[in-house]
Every structure is written in C-alpha cells, then in structure tokens.
Amino acid sequence: MAGNIAKRANGKWRARYRDEAGKEHSRHFDRKIDAQQWLDRVTSAVVTGTYADPQAGKITFSAFFGEWSARQVWAPGTVLAMSLAARSTPFAGKPISQVRRSDVEAWIKQMNAAGLAPGTIKTRYVNVRSVFRAAVKDRAIGSDPTDGVRLPRRRRADVAMSIPTPEEVGQLMTVADERFQPFVALCAFAGLRLGEAAGVQLGDVDFLRKTLKVSRQVQRLNGGEIDVRAPKYGSERVVYLADNLVNVRAKHVAKYGTTGKSRWLFAGEEEGPPHQNTVGHWWRKALRDAGLSGIKLHDLRHFYASGLIAAGCDVVTVQRSLGHSKATTTLNTYAHLWPTAEDRTRKAAESIMSASLDPPAAMLDKVAMEMRE
C-alpha cells in the first residue's frame, strides 16, 4: 500500500493512500500528526488483514446480504433459513460497517425475550454470522461483530431428548391407520426423517437384500406445493432393514400398491407423496387413538438410535444408519446413551463375580445326584 502526507495551500494536511485495487482514499487534517496517525492505522490494518474499504462498508446489512446471497449455491431450504435470519435482524437497514457487537447482543436478547428456543436462536445467529464473515473476506468490514457473542444455554441432550418406550411404539403401531403403520415403522425401526419416509419409492427397497436406499426427501414449500429434493447434506445412505420391517413393506405394497408414475409408497395428493401437514394429521390421530401425548414423530428416530446403541453399535455405525454427515453430530446428540467407563467397569466386575461365586452347572448336577441317592 502506497501512502503519503502533503500540506495543502489552505494549511490542511492531506493523507492519502491507494488500496490493493488501486483506488485512492484520502482525508484532511488540521495537524500533520493526526494525518500520520490515521495513515499508520490504515497501514496497520492492511498488514494485519483487517483492512476494509471505507466506501464498501457504507452498504446496508440487508443490501450486502441480497448481493452476497444471490451468488451462493444453496438448497431451497437454506435460502429460506438464511432469508428468515437476515430479515429478523433489527440492524438490517444499518450500514454494515456500523453494526456493533452491542447490536448483535441486543438482537440475541430480543429473540430470547420473544420466547424462541435456544436452538432456533443459535441457528439464526450462525446464519447471520456467515454474512458478516463474508463481508470481512470482501473487505467491506474489518472485523466480525458477531465474534464472542454469548448465546442462551441449550438444555443438555439427555434432558431435552424424549425417547418413546417400546410399549408406546408398539401401541402406536397397533392403533395407527393401516396405511400409516408402515410410515411409523420406517421412522421407528429404520430411523428415517419425516421427509425421507415420505419420499420412499418402491424402487428404493431391495426386498432380496433387505435394504432401503435413502436418496430423496419431500418438503412443503410456501403455498402448499410439494418439493422433492436430495436429503440433507451427507444423509444419502443405505439402511439395513430388519426382516419384520421388510415384511411390513411387502404387505403394504401387496395390499395398497403404489402411487403415481414414481411409485411412491405413501400417497399424498394428485398422485404425489405426502408432505408435512398430511403426515402431521396422520400422526396426531394415531397419538389420540393410542391415548398418548407429548411424543413427536421425530422422537421415533431417537428411539431407533437408542436401540442401535443399546445393542452395542459403535459411533460410526449409528452415524451411517442415521445419515449424519459427521460423527461429531452423532456424539453431540446421543453421547449420553452410550455406556460410560463406569458402566463398563460395573458390568465387567459383575461378570467376574458371577464366574467366581455362581455354582458351575456340573457342580449343581453332582449335588442333585447325591441328594437323589
């Protein structure tokens, strides 16, 4: 960066420099020392990588988001989530260089006071933070005002998570509408998400190898339209089905067939698959008929994961079965369900004690024989 200071005819001192793009920036000062200090600060910002174009920072947060988001390759769901987060900020109309950490903190406080869940607040915060980070990389601002902002604490996974009991799942399977039973089974015994289960086609099921390919999901757009898209990032997978679940699928197809040219397993409207509202209606009816409450359809996915863990499956196996993109996601969600070191030690000690104190079968046979004599 080239810069210099010169005294003007009117007695003012002009400090100026050219940025990396060759654009000239200048300011006038009454004293030379003030001009030098300003130029030193700019030079320091360039050296440390925190330099920002003063003119670029005048764009409002909303306008910057509009220009930046138009260049991003996002799934439709991401577009909606990012737009919602950006619109929710009270500083949307403020020049992005003037947004301070205090503005972000006030926004977080506002969402918390409105009763939004900590998870929802974190999601919006992360989305808005990505906008500011893009602005830093674009040299529109020198630093990210979201850095270090504290968020409301989330409940521990073991407290927040609700896992139905086998008895409750069995009850739901019994009373659910016959056409809906296989849907419940896919969520409870294969761990599919609502949209993934709704998007299953006959060709996804390999009855011989007893597998199910998860390669799409169904989402409902604004206005009630159906959108069929790829699953969440990293969620494409092959699920290994229990024999009974394969039988449930086969009986369903034999009795009700499939829907539309795509051969959807579950029928929605106009030969298409069902969306969230339709499935939600089926689920609420099943809960009422079972005399249950407080159980979400997504809780069946937790039920499936807990069953895999209880059966001794490792983290990677559970991760792949659930379609998590990273093992850390699986651990962050279900770590409390895996046996601890204390659990393993207790079980090992019990095994040692049983082997030492429980009478061997041969000894019991000998005692029984002596008693008969």
Results as ranks from 00 to 15, higher is better:
Ala15Gln: 00
Thr330Tyr: 15
Ala185Leu: 15
His252Gly: 11
Gly49Leu: 10
His324Phe: 13
Ala188Lys: 03
Tyr17Leu: 01
Gly312His: 09
Ala310Pro: 00
Ala81Gln: 06
Glu370Arg: 04
Ala114Glu: 09
Arg155Val: 04
His25Ile: 01
Tyr233Met: 13
Gln217His: 08
Gln55Trp: 01
Gln110Leu: 15
Trp38Gln: 06
Leu116Phe: 02
Val318Leu: 12
Gly223Ala: 07
Ala35Leu: 00
Asp227Leu: 05
Ala157Ile: 14
Val218Gly: 02
Arg320Asn: 15
Ala56Phe: 06
Ser351Asp: 10
Val200Tyr: 05
Arg41Ile: 15
Pro118Ala: 11
Glu24Met: 15
Phe64Asp: 03
Glu271Phe: 04
Arg156Cys: 10
Lys251Gln: 13
Trp107Thr: 14
Val47His: 14
Val239Lys: 07
Asp289Glu: 10
Asp158Thr: 12
Asp365Pro: 00
Ser162Gln: 10
Ala117Ile: 05
Arg8Leu: 12
Arg124Trp: 14
Tyr304Cys: 04
Ala176Tyr: 05
Arg129Gln: 09
Glu178Gln: 03
Val46Asp: 10
Ser354His: 12
Met1His: 05
Gln110Pro: 12
Gln37Glu: 11
Asn332Ala: 15
Trp283Thr: 04
Trp107Asp: 07
Gly312Val: 05
Asp358Asn: 08
Gln37Ile: 06
Gly191Ala: 14
Pro164Asp: 00
Ser26Thr: 11
Gly203Leu: 13
Ala2Phe: 11
Ala106Ser: 10
Thr259Phe: 12
Ala349Cys: 14
His252Leu: 09
Lys7Glu: 13
Gly3Leu: 01
Ser88Asp: 09
Ile59Pro: 01
Leu308Tyr: 00
Ala341Leu: 13
Leu151Asn: 10
Lys58Pro: 02
Gly57Cys: 03
Asn247Trp: 12
Leu337Ile: 08
Thr48His: 09
Ala140Ser: 03
Trp107Tyr: 13
Leu194Cys: 05
Arg288Met: 05
Arg288Asn: 06
